[in-house]
């Protein structure tokens, strides 16, 4: 029985399935996926309650983004780090399938669990607020919400390549996590940050996507000066760059780790 040519779709599905099984089997995932969103929701509610009529929307968006950030971006990179820890990176890379598609599968699952986190935040804030939120443009809201996830996933894939590259990726990511989080405007708009931080913020696709999401969600929102369509175009462009970089980086990283032989290091 010779194995048939391995399809990318099958690799992706297998990776999603494994991620789900590990999620269900490991109680530690309950914290970032179920408990953290409740805490984020309550904190955001308290932070924004005095900021006018749209405070609940701010709270949902801010805390929702924070939850999704952790799940979608951090989770994708960390899953590869876990492969290093378990020693499963070697057998996975010795299979006849590009590792990029294994990572893509994890990103898909982390995106879904990020959405669940976002939904939990919504429920917590609405329950605290006492009435349902009204979004002026529900279709635009949903589209932009998915768009934000795609941009987070693009960064997540690049982070995953980093985890394959070196065992120190987790250390650097832990140090930078909250700086990235604030810098991309997940909790509050980047326009509130000092000007000199803006170029750094704009290097990350979620910055513009989150701003675009606020434009369609919050009436009268004044975000970055180029407006909603400028945000969308910029986010699309930077996401495309990230995905292109991820494809190239993964290819190079796979070659690099075969040269250095550090796959089994943890």
């Amino acid at each position: 029985m010779a194995p048939s040519e391995v399809s990318r779709g099958r690799t992706l599905l297998a990776s999603v399935r494994l991620a789900v099984l590990q999620f269900l089997a490991d109680p530690q995932w309950l914290v970032p996926s179920m408990i953290a969103p409740v805490v984020f929701g309550l904190v955001a509610y308290e932070l924004f309650r005095g900021s006018g009529a749209n405070f609940a929307l701010y709270a949902v968006l801010g805390a929702g983004m924070m939850s999704m950030w952790g799940q979608t971006l951090y989770g994708s990179g960390w899953a590869t780090g876990q492969d290093r820890e378990l020693g499963t990176l070697e057998p996975t890379l010795s299979a006849p399938t590009p590792y990029l598609w294994v990572v893509m599968g994890r990103v898909v699952w982390n995106t879904v669990s990020g959405l669940i986190g976002g939904a939990i935040v919504y429920v917590v804030v609405v329950a605290s607020y006492g009435r349902p939120l009204s979004v002026p443009n529900p279709v635009g809201f949903v589209l932009m919400f998915v768009f934000v996830i795609v941009t987070l996933a693009a960064v997540g894939i690049v982070f995953a390549a980093w985890y394959v590259y070196t065992r120190y990726a987790g250390f650097v990511q832990n140090v930078g996590e909250f700086a990235f989080y604030v810098g991309t405007g997940c909790m509050f708009p980047v326009i509130l940050l000092p000007f000199w931080t803006n170029p750094v913020s704009l290097a990350f696709p979620p910055t513009l996507a989150v701003d675009a999401l606020r434009y369609v969600s919050i009436p009268g929102y004044q975000g970055l000066s180029w407006g909603f369509w400028g945000d969308v175009a910029g986010a699309l462009a930077t996401t495309a760059v990230y995905l292109a970089v991820a494809g190239t980086v993964f290819h190079r990283v796979e070659k690099h780790v075969l040269e250095t032989g550090n796959l089994s290091e943890w």
Partner: peptide, 10 residues
């Protein structure tokens, strides 16, 4: 099963 999929077992 995971590795069977990665190896493209029919």
């Amino acid at each position: 099963r995971y590795f069977a999929d990665l190896y493209g077992l029919p």
